[in-house]
Design a binder for these strands. Structure first.
Length: 327
DNA sequence: AAAGTCGTCAACCGCCGTCGC
DNA sequence: GGCGACGGCGGTTGACGACTT
């Protein structure tokens, strides 16, 4: 027998979320934070399963999510990551902070997989006498894995105490600047939803039509310039703090929702109301593992796509690589 | 214009790992 | 250690719009 259902299915509403439900959910999360999902339906009055609430937040309402077309860099990134991690969409999403695991999964299943298959077929047809593209792909993959393995091995051969002290420093360095507001742009998400809602006439069952491209307008209004200003401010503060580059070797990834108010509080070190506290996935296990220098791995993995990455991904990267090569 | 097919993607389902009791 | 609750994850579904016949 399986587990008992997480919710009373008789009382649970299913199907697409309405803007009203979204507003209820976002208001609750703004007040209490994205935790204790079990209590969310009770406190908000939503007739939704706790899982459904969490999913709605994670895949749609959470600020900082970018929707719509994937860039070429993101596409390359996903192809690389898929080769390395397989179908571990959540892990892949940690390298593409603006994309959700669901988005990446959908993009892979509906588009990328077919595209790669097509390319492979085309390559096979164009050079039938040579080795197959699959052979070439596998050879390249093997070479890449060898490169990464070597880089990892070099890094691991360094003294452990050095690594630990460096790690502590790195964690401190990363913690501060990555603290970004999370809920500040929820209002924008809701505004977007409402715009869509009013744009499209709701159907009797409450479902709205969706053309799938409607979400790009979040930052196209007057708030854009203030966001840009805030980003500049934020960047200069990072530079004052010594910058992330020594550790990351990357440009820091900016959450689009950053506000100057938060930047100021980051710089001054003051504590902030919950509304502006960060929501990040915990770096599980990071203290148990040496945070190796992974410049070679990074170069291989990020190949062409570094600009779009968030610095804290390095932790995830080291975890995945260690897990990958120790398995 | 109608019917059929395809592509997209939000949401659901069920399994698994972790945690607290 | 066993058990249940919970959160997280990947696979899958199904509604809907777009496209084709």
């Amino acid at each position: 027998m399986g587990r008992l259902p997480c919710c009373d299915k008789m009382r649970v509403k299913k199907g697409p979320w309405t803007p009203e439900e979204d507003i209820l959910l976002v208001s609750y999360i703004q007040e209490h934070g994205p935790r204790n999902w079990k209590s969310v339906p009770n406190h908000t009055g939503l007739l939704r399963c706790s899982k459904s609430c969490r999913l709605r937040w994670a895949n749609y309402l959470r600020p900082g999510i970018r929707r719509g077309d994937f860039t070429e860099q993101e596409e390359k990134m996903i192809i690389h990551l898929q080769a390395l991690l397989g179908n571990r969409w959540a892990a892949m999403a940690s390298y593409l902070p603006q994309r959700t695991d669901n988005d990446i999964k959908n993009y892979w299943n509906t588009y990328l997989k077919k595209k790669l298959r097509k390319l492979q077929t085309a390559a096979d047809i164009s050079s039938p006498t040579n080795s197959t593209s699959r052979d070439r792909w596998e050879r390249r993959l093997q070479a890449d894995i060898q490169t990464t393995r070597q880089a990892l091995s070099d890094a691991l051969s360094r003294g452990k105490s050095d690594l630990l002290s460096e790690l502590k420093h790195d964690i401190d360095a990363v913690k501060k600047p990555v603290q970004v507001p999370v809920y500040a742009s929820s209002t924008e998400n809701i505004a977007r939803l409402l715009r869509e809602w009013t744009k499209k006439s709701p159907k009797p069952d409450g479902r709205t039509s969706n053309d799938g491209s409607s979400s790009e307008s979040s930052f196209n209004d007057g708030s854009l310039s203030s966001i840009t200003d805030a980003l500049s401010c934020y960047k200069s503060e990072i530079e004052e703090l010594g910058g992330l580059e020594p550790f990351l070797g990357l440009e820091p990834c900016m959450e689009p929702s950053i506000s100057s108010e938060v930047s100021q509080s980051v710089a001054s070190g003051e504590t902030r109301p919950y509304l502006f506290q960060e929501e990040t996935k915990p770096n599980l296990g990071v203290l148990d593992q040496p945070n190796v220098t992974l410049s070679s791995c990074r170069k291989w993995l990020y190949d062409d796509g570094a600009d779009s990455l968030c610095g804290r991904s390095d932790f995830h990267l080291s975890e995945h690589l260690l897990e990958f090569f120790s398995s």
